[in-house]
Write a protein that binds this DNA or RNA. Sequence first.
DNA 1: GTGTCACACTCCTGAGGAGA
DNA 2: TCTCCTCAGGAGTGTGACAC
Length: 354
Amino acid sequence: ASSATSASSDSGKYVRYTPEQVEALERLYHECPKPTSMRRQQLIRECPILSSIEPKQIKVWFQNRRCREKQRKEASRLQSVNRKLAAMNKLLMEENDRLQKQVSQLVYENSYFRQRKEVAKKDTSCESAVTSRQKNQFPLRDSSPAGLLSIAEETLTEFLSKATGTAIEWIQMPGMKPGPDSIGIISISHGCPGMAARACGLVGLEPTRVAEVLKDQTSWCRDFRALDVLNVLPTANGGTIELLYVQMYAPSNLAPGRDFWLLRYTSVMGDGSLVVCVKSLANTHNGPNIPPVANFARAEMFPSGFLIRHCEGGGSMIHIVDHMNLEAWSVPEVLRPLYESSTVLAQRITMAVM
DNA sequence: GTGTCACACTCCTGAGGAGA
DNA sequence: TCTCCTCAGGAGTGTGACAC
């Protein structure tokens, strides 16, 4: 201790107090951490081991001692906070982990239930079609993709025979001035009096583009109050088979419209022409049975499809085919021979007369 | 206004450990 | 044994509060 004190005297600046001096100072500090000036002088007098230390040094030592204690307490507090935060962080990490697993599980379950919903929807639509078919004695073989493809192919063959009908009449389009664009065709198949083709025209678009336009056109929907695509099946030739449920407006707006199951088949032919044809699978006959009205012919008219052929000079030739079912009983007897002739012109004349 | 004290911050130095 | 680095602690300095 004396050497440390003498070193202080020699250098006059920095000294290390001896362990005995530090122990004495610590003991006094615990008794009174903040002694007054008088008390410090008293301590120096009462404790010989501190007699070699200047009063100013004692004052500084207490000062630094209080500062260190405060720093230790603050460090201890920060460590405690750090431990609590670490524990909280661990809990939050575990909670986050648990929630992420829960999210994954919910996403998986959502996907699973969506798939089940889709399957149930398809089953319901096909089942409904089958039920409706059975109720109406419609020859729908089965609702499997193979069955629908079989029906679609038959529909395509039937549609093509009608769209490229055996009896073709070139006519001047009503309301148009004579010219190249005003010429259209109306054709009708022999032995199928209800089918008519109309509005053949040339457009400067590619077949696929025309098909997209026509499929979205209001010409498809104008007769429909509602149209739902219940199922879409791709075909090997790049086409699609769509199972549609449609509700039609009542012809005279005096009665609720009828609902139909339709099969829409879009197919690309070998020569590049594109066919969109529709077959009515069944109807539920949910509308009232309207009695015959004199002087009015009863008929149902709905689109059957489009035949879009690529032209050599560019553009596409479009055949829009409407399926018009005249109810023969509504045609007056005097006009029936004319109506039952094989030309659509005769039927148009018949209707015009009526 | 001046002196004193406490506090916070900073600088400096000695002690001690690790490694070449 | 020497060097380098870290740490503890003594001491200096600036600032605000308070009493006179």
